[in-house]
Amino acid sequence: MKRRTVLKTALFAGIAVMLAGPALAQEKIKIGLSQGTMNHPWRVAMVEGNKDYAQKNLPDVDLIITDGQNDSSKQVADVESLMAQGIKVLMISPLTADALTPVVADAMAAGIKVVTLDRKVNTDVTVHVGAENKPIGEAAGKFIAEKLGGKGKIIELQGTGGASAVVDRHQGFVDAIKGTDLEIVATQNCDFLRENAVKFMEDQLQRFGPGEIQAVYAHNDEMALGAIQALEAVGRLNEVVVVGIDGQNNAFEAIKAGKLAATFTYPFVAPEGIEIAYKVAKGEKVDPVIILPGKQVDASNVDQMLGKGF
């Protein structure tokens, strides 16, 4: 009787091991992706690109995605929620640097690896992945300076106030036009949104009459397309050079149509973001800063880029 009890105990123990084994094997690596906002195509492309790659190529990853809805407080709460869920790596594209710095510092202190995408925070992270914004701003400034012969008045449509990308895109542009007779006569944070750009441009086109504005520098293609919409509505597009940043398909189409002078492609960090986060989760060594290259697209090369944007 005693022997049967021992055998039964061993059998149950073996079944328990068999059941536990696959469960442990199926345990996935939790990676959180905190997006600051999904209110325009570039950010949607970032999220969808990383999600699709993970689904197709990383079966051992559980990617948890949150949307800060253009609210820094909401994004802070999102990151805290991701930390509570036991993520191993935090991928984050912060809405603004200052607001998200403390919670990212908390994540690092808790032993969670952090990969910042596109925008930075003011604290150490494991890896930053993105393009360099200041050189893009400089390239846009040089392009406009060449187009206008170094003389003219410019309206600047900035993105989200306080975002590292906005600071760098503005400063690079300002540096590039130093020593010229180009002047920024109006600027506004339009939050990277087309509708905000349209409204601000409509106001400025009432303020500045025909011939008083020579260029518009927009921090992204959505705002550049908004500027074009406002200029077309009053028949003044032919007198203004409009430049954007990002590389949307409809921006390429606008260049082909002769409405947009140029855009500068800005990689949306997909699938590079999840690729790097996965390496970090696996303990692989990666460079602390990974720069993704962009390029100028204008009438001379737009045919090669049509259909290759987002």
Results as ranks from 00 to 15, higher is better:
170 H>Q: 13
141 G>E: 00
115 V>Q: 00
86 G>W: 04
191 D>N: 01
105 A>H: 13
103 V>E: 08
179 G>A: 02
150 G>K: 13
164 S>V: 02
167 V>E: 12
194 R>K: 12
172 G>A: 08
195 E>L: 08
172 G>C: 03
181 D>W: 08
91 M>I: 01
180 T>A: 11
166 V>H: 02
126 T>L: 10
163 A>E: 00
181 D>V: 07
84 A>S: 15
193 L>N: 06
132 E>T: 11
177 I>F: 04
114 V>E: 05
129 V>H: 01
177 I>C: 02
172 G>D: 03
116 T>K: 01
128 H>V: 00
87 I>N: 04
132 E>R: 15
79 V>S: 14
162 G>C: 14
117 L>A: 01
180 T>G: 11
121 V>K: 10
126 T>M: 10
78 D>G: 09
185 V>D: 00
104 V>L: 10
163 A>Q: 03
177 I>G: 01
127 V>G: 03
180 T>S: 15
109 A>G: 07
119 R>A: 01
122 N>G: 15
160 T>F: 10
175 D>S: 14
129 V>D: 01
177 I>T: 06
119 R>Y: 01
193 L>P: 06
171 Q>L: 11
157 L>Q: 11
192 F>T: 02
184 I>W: 13
93 S>T: 09
135 P>S: 08
159 G>W: 01
103 V>H: 09
128 H>W: 00
123 T>A: 15
127 V>F: 11
151 K>T: 15
178 K>Q: 15
101 T>N: 08
186 A>T: 13
109 A>W: 01
114 V>I: 10
147 K>A: 08
154 I>V: 05
180 T>P: 08
95 L>A: 05
140 A>T: 10
109 A>P: 07
122 N>W: 11
138 E>R: 13
151 K>W: 04
102 P>C: 13
171 Q>K: 14
150 G>F: 14
100 L>G: 06
161 G>M: 13
148 L>H: 12
190 C>I: 08
97 A>P: 02
81 S>A: 08
136 I>N: 05
175 D>G: 12
155 I>H: 07
99 A>S: 15
188 Q>K: 14
87 I>S: 06
190 C>N: 12
130 G>T: 08
171 Q>M: 12
180 T>V: 05
108 M>I: 14
124 D>W: 04
78 D>Q: 12
79 V>D: 14
111 G>E: 09
86 G>M: 03
111 G>P: 09
98 D>K: 15
191 D>C: 00
131 A>W: 02
153 K>F: 03
195 E>R: 03
128 H>D: 01
87 I>A: 06
156 E>Y: 09
90 L>Y: 12
179 G>S: 01
152 G>H: 09
179 G>D: 02
194 R>Q: 12
151 K>S: 15
101 T>S: 15
81 S>P: 02
137 G>E: 07
192 F>A: 03
141 G>C: 01
189 N>M: 07
173 F>P: 12
184 I>Q: 13
186 A>K: 15
193 L>F: 03
109 A>M: 03
86 G>H: 05
185 V>S: 07
194 R>C: 04
116 T>Y: 00
90 L>M: 10
